[in-house]
Design a protein around this nucleic acid. Structure first.
Length: 602
DNA sequence: GAGTTTGAAACT
DNA sequence: CAGTTTCAAACTC
């Protein structure tokens, strides 16, 4: 997906974004296919993960100029992933969503400083370059802003719509790019050259202003900058081979808050769901939804099917549920639509074929929404190579095996709770499997007990592998830290439910003591089958972050946020990539296409 | 490329 | 929190 490029000594692949919890704007700004993106650490940022903070990285996106060294990754698109460089030395490459690399000069906002990240009360990105004062920058900015808007507009439009080089940027006129109207600002990145904005303040020169504004917005809505698109793992296995058969369509995503379309029937890019190539869910309040990626009604129907089943049956028949859901959607897509889109997989994230003008978008999506492990791996064949240090080679087989096992697990239980996906860092696709496993260990259902047991084994294996292979020093992680790495300072929601997870991981014997999910409702998706199991009265009301839900859960969730995130971060080193390399064949041999066999396979 | 439509974000 | 306004992107011509 993203070709590796060399940046001096530290070359590593920007792992393609998992798609988990992607900000919609990040999607829009995705890089073009051929645009290799490489994130490289500054020399001063080398070394193993500093759990206190996030690494700033440079991005080299589309023919990025030298000055990109000053770019850092938006907290929305950053993840901590370890990998080994070709020379075998371990570095701390940051998995970067292609988001910002799309611009010619991606000046990306960097994450908060360490202290704030530790608290993780906010995860706002911070403009990277603090060397200049705002006043001193004013001049520069003025110059930038004085660029002929029309000229810039032309530039922007030439690459807009996601069908150009993907370097689509904003065109704000009145908001100074300091409101969420601004795609760049909303995505946590600075405006850049391709932008046609006027009076833009969303520039490194105004980082203070940007920060302030962000804080302001976040105070109103803590998840304002959270990714809009969250991963809903697994569609019908059949989908994975739809179209030309070369596509891996193992996952899909959904809009976190849902759309509110009235007239577009969710068939135009006005619709955020459609724009993100995700189906509408019951979080949407759209009217006359005809989203080709999945209608709201279908979502509800599928959920109802799940909810009506006896608990036990559901617990035992997770796959039936998935199949039902898939069947529903498939039926719809296959029989009801004449729209060319009907040919696209339900999990457009993995569209591989061209549909005219949608081709590039599909490519977009492919890069940005990929979440499930199989696809991650499949699409990153070079990854293993690039990260495979000599030191790692010894454990490569084991790692592969472990990964394979993980894939098995994941393929069987992906749909159990796509919040799992939210637990996963958006750009640490290789860790998704483990994340799923971790979550699985918490599940109360009998089948999962076996799974949990197995998982424990796998976990241990994996830990061993991970430590041996990816953390030779071993001093960077605590003994139980290897599965805590999921903490994403970027997206708070995933972490919230993870506090309990830590308990699980601390003691395999307590797997069932930890079913409690302290994730605030606001951050939960109650529409998932798993939620249906856990929640007796699903929240039917739309997620309305700014007011209702946030305030509704305000105090508690706030506390939860603090404690949850803090807790996680205390011992959470960013985890190294799970399995740097896996063969596509491995994936195809997984039980992806035959989930029923999963259990037996295990 | 100008004008219109649309729905998210912001505001009241 | 519902209704309204503002905004910028998407879309149409």
């Amino acid at each position: 997906m993203i070709s590796p490029r060399k940046c001096g000594n530290s070359t590593f692949i920007m792992s393609k974004p998992s798609g988990i919890g992607l900000h919609l704007n990040s999607i829009v700004n995705a890089m073009p296919m051929g645009c290799g993106a490489t994130a490289s650490l500054k020399s001063t940022e080398k070394g193993y993960l500093n759990i206190k903070g996030m690494k700033s990285v440079s991005i080299r996106g589309c023919h990025l100029p030298e000055n990109t060294k000053n770019s850092s990754i938006s907290s929305n698109v950053i993840d901590k992933v370890s990998a080994s460089t070709e020379d075998g030395s371990h570095e701390t490459p940051t998995s970067v969503g292609a988001t910002s690399a799309t611009s010619q000069s991606p000046q990306i906002v960097k994450p908060l400083n360490n202290t704030v990240q530790l608290e993780l009360i906010e995860y706002r990105p911070t403009p990277y370059d603090k060397s200049k004062s705002s006043s001193a920058r004013a001049e520069t900015v003025e110059e930038l802003n004085q660029l002929n808007p029309k000229k810039k507009r032309q530039k922007a439009s030439g690459t807009s719509d996601g069908d150009g080089d993907g370097c689509k940027r904003c065109n704000c006129k009145k908001t100074k790019c300091l409101k969420l109207y601004c795609d760049c600002f909303a995505a946590g990145i600075y405006c850049a050259e391709p932008c046609a904005c006027q009076g833009c303040f969303n520039r490194p020169e105004y980082e203070d202003t940007v920060l302030e504004t962000r804080q302001q917005i976040e105070s109103r809505n803590p998840i304002a900058f959270a990714p809009k698109i969250v991963q809903r793992v697994t569609e019908s296995p059949a989908n994975s081979s739809r179209e030309d058969g070369n596509c891996l369509t193992p996952s899909s995503a959904k809009h976190k808050r849902g759309c509110n379309c009235k007239k577009s029937m969710c068939l135009k890019k006005y619709c955020e769901c459609y724009q993100a190539n995700v189906g509408c869910s019951d979080g949407c309040r759209c009217e006359g939804c005809k989203n080709v990626y999945g209608r709201k009604e279908e979502y509800s129907m599928a959920k109802d099917v799940v909810n009506k089943r006896p608990i036990d049956e559901r617990l035992e028949g997770g796959f039936d549920v998935k199949l039902e859901m898939a069947a529903t959607r498939n039926g719809f897509v296959q029989t009801e639509l004449c729209d060319p889109h009907s040919l696209t997989p339900l999990t457009p994230s993995f569209q591989c074929s061209d549909h005219g003008k949608d081709a590039s978008k599909s490519r977009f999506a492919s890069r940005r929404y990929i979440q499930s492990p199989e696809s991650d791996l499949a699409l990153l064949p070079p990854y293993g190579k690039s990260v495979g240090s000599p030191r790692n080679s010894d454990n490569h087989d084991l790692l592969l095996k472990t990964r394979k096992d993980i894939l098995d697990l994941v393929s069987c239980h992906q749909e159990l709770d796509y919040d799992i996906a939210e637990t996963v860092d958006e750009f640490s696709p290789r860790c998704d499997g483990i994340a799923n496993i971790c979550r699985l260990t918490m599940l109360p259902d009998p089948p999962t007990m076996a799974m949990a047991s197995l998982t424990s084994t796998k976990k241990r294996d994996w830990e061993n592998v991970s430590r041996d292979q990816l953390c030779p020093g071993g001093d960077h992680f605590s003994s139980v830290s290897s599965l805590r790495w999921r903490s994403s300072p970027i997206t708070p929601m995933p972490q919230l439910g993870s506090a309990k997870l830590l308990q699980v991981l601390d003691s395999d014997n307590k797997l069932y003591d930890i079913l409690e999910d302290d994730t605030p409702e606001i951050l939960k998706d109650t529409s998932t089958p798993l939620s249906a199991m856990k929640v007796s009265s699903p929240n039917k009301k739309r997620v309305s972050p700014p007011h209702g839900r946030l305030h509704e859960h305000g105090s508690s969730s706030s506390a939860g946020l603090r404690s949850g995130r803090k807790f996680i971060l205390q011992a959470v080193p960013s985890f190294p990539p799970l399995t740097p390399c896996i063969d596509l064949k491995d994936i195809s041999n997984q039980n992806i296409n035959d989930p029923q066999d999963c259990s037996s396979n295990k």
